[in-house]
């Protein structure tokens, strides 16, 4: 019991709260990596809170106060568990392309995240539109995805700026990262032809450098530059519609043996095979997030705040016991 009292000491609470504040300040102002410090201090705060709940009789008398502190405890545990289960990543899908787990570029993976979870996700990219105000200010974005790609009839869903696609707990958010792609097929000297897309930098942000490098399946290192037949009038409002992108772009190809310029339908012979340029298409960039604890964290936050409000509601009278601690002080009594 004595150990519990020590662990649940209010003095320790103040020291730990000060350490959390200092850790955040050091990370923000000093640019230090405060994550290990914060993780340790938050773990100690959990122990401190458990000790306080177990030993302080006030928590048994004041159920709303207990509920608030239990919510704080739950929030800290949920954040820690969420960090272990989390997946964050990026994804680019060309028009008509189906989602595949291998396409996700993972940027943050929790230790307990299972790759198998992504296997159950299925959707296919469709058309997307982006509204622009004068001055190329991005406004609403809408992306249509078919969430039943193997079905007889498409089941389309609109994904937008604040409306992610949610499947199996994964949330797919549209991003401002989207653009043009060259639809090309590769016909090797021997073997089967393959068709795919080469994505160019985000458009219209990088409309002045639509260049990308690509190594063909035959091993030819290529630099591709797209010259799209798109009129960009930054001073006017317009809507970028992926289905209205003219296919008639020009693809300039630089390789070890020279340069070439291809129009849709034209072909380039290379040592490893033939590359056929079919025309322009588009790609959409998504941010992928998986954290199954988030709905619980939100509920915990709301319940905690309401419990705190309820606790203070009980002390609205100036004579309420809650505020009497300072009454003994002569400076206040005066």
């Amino acid at each position: 019991m004595r150990v519990l009292r020590l662990l649940g000491s209010l003095k320790l609470t103040f020291v730990l709260l000060a350490a959390v504040t200092a850790g955040i300040g050091a990370g923000y102002v000093g640019g230090l990596d405060a994550r290990p410090l914060l993780t340790g201090v938050l773990a100690l705060l959990i122990v401190n809170l458990l000790g306080a709940i177990a030993t302080h009789p006030r928590f048994r008398r004041q159920s709303a106060l207990l509920a608030f502190h239990l919510c704080l405890l739950a929030a800290m545990v949920l954040v820690a568990v969420g960090d272990l289960l989390r997946l964050e990543g990026r994804l680019e899908l060309a028009n008509g392309q189906a989602f595949e787990p291998e396409l996700v570029q993972i940027t943050n993976r929790g230790a307990w995240f299972s790759d198998a979870a992504l296997e159950a996700v299925a959707f296919r990219q469709g058309r997307f539109t982006v509204d622009y105000a004068p001055g190329l200010v991005r406004r609403a974005m809408r992306s249509w995805v078919d969430v039943s790609p193997g079905g007889e009839h498409p089941d389309r869903q609109i994904v937008g700026d604040t409306q992610p696609l949610v499947q199996q707990g994964f949330r797919f958010y549209t991003t401002s990262n989207k653009g043009l792609a060259a639809l090309v097929s590769w016909v090797p000297v021997r073997g089967r032809a393959q068709i795919g897309t080469v994505h160019f930098p985000s458009w219209p942000l990088h409309d002045w450098k639509q260049v990308n490098e690509w190594t063909s399946p035959g091993g030819d290192a290529l630099v591709l530059e797209l010259v799209p037949a798109l009129d960009l009038a930054p001073g006017e409002a317009f809507t970028f519609d992926s289905e209205r992108v003219p296919a008639a772009g020009e693809l300039r190809v630089s390789h070890a043996h020279g340069d070439a310029s291809l129009l849709p339908g034209q072909m380039l012979r290379l040592p490893g095979g033939r590359m056929v340029f079919h025309g322009l298409t588009t790609w959409m960039g998504y941010r992928v997030v998986y954290d199954p604890t988030l709905p619980w964290l939100l509920a915990t936050g709301i319940v905690g705040a309401l419990a705190l409000g309820w606790h203070f509601m009980g002390s609205l009278s100036p004579d309420a016991r809650l505020w009497r601690a300072a009454d003994r002080d002569p400076a206040v009594r005066a």
């Binding site: 209010l10 609470t13 103040f14 709260l17 809650l322 505020w323 601690a325 300072a326 003994r328 002080d329 400076a331 206040v332």
Partner: peptide, 10 residues
Amino acid sequence: HARLTWKLPP
């Protein structure tokens, strides 16, 4: 917290 649990100087 300090106001409610300690004798914090006013």
